[in-house]
């Protein structure tokens, strides 16, 4: 039974560690040296901070990129969390395994002028010419040339 108590105590202490992370004092959430003491910990009143960093990340990782970036404006805590490289990796790894976020990019080449580019869901297995197709915005003056691999990234 002693082992059980130790296990429970261990779980409890892990939960406390999660809850005690406070972004207002530390820009880097994952700094190992960051260990706030009980006295300096502010009262956790906002729902997001009561949930703890890990849980909030588990929710935010499901957001599409547009909302993900917009929600940086929610508070300092969210801004720092969303800007964390570790979290960006987590979001990216979820997105690349999510069939709904995989797209097929295609373009029509015109000899002169701007060539429109389109994308459609890769998972739908649909005809690329159906209503699922979206026209993409891209920098003016960009002309796709010949056949090849196009790499897109969001800086």
């Amino acid at each position: 039974m002693k082992r059980c108590n130790e296990l429970s105590a261990d779980i409890e202490s892990k939960k406390k560690q999660k809850k005690s992370i406070s972004i207002t004092k530390k820009p880097n959430l994952f700094d190992k040296e960051f260990n706030p003491s009980e006295e300096t910990e502010p009262e956790l009143k906002d729902v997001d901070q009561a949930m703890g960093t890990e849980i909030l990340m588990d929710i935010l990782k499901w957001l599409p990129l547009r909302s993900f970036l917009r929600f940086k404006c929610v508070s300092k805590f969210w801004n720092a969390l969303i800007s964390e490289p570790y979290f960006k990796m987590k979001q990216l790894s979820r997105a690349k395994n999510d069939k709904n976020s995989q797209r097929f990019v295609t373009s029509e080449i015109y000899p002169k002028g701007i060539s429109p580019m389109y994308c459609c869901h890769l998972s739908s297995g649909s005809d690329p010419l159906n209503e699922d197709v979206q026209e993409l915005d891209y920098p003016t003056g960009f002309i796709p040339w010949g056949c090849g691999l196009l790499c897109c990234c969001d800086p």
Binding site: K45, V47, S67, F71, C73, V74, F77, W78
Partner: peptide, 18 residues
Amino acid sequence: LKNKSVRAVREMLKITND
């Protein structure tokens, strides 16, 4: 949350904008 405005998220989760 995904389509919500920043203001709506703050209100839904009772977050203070700092």
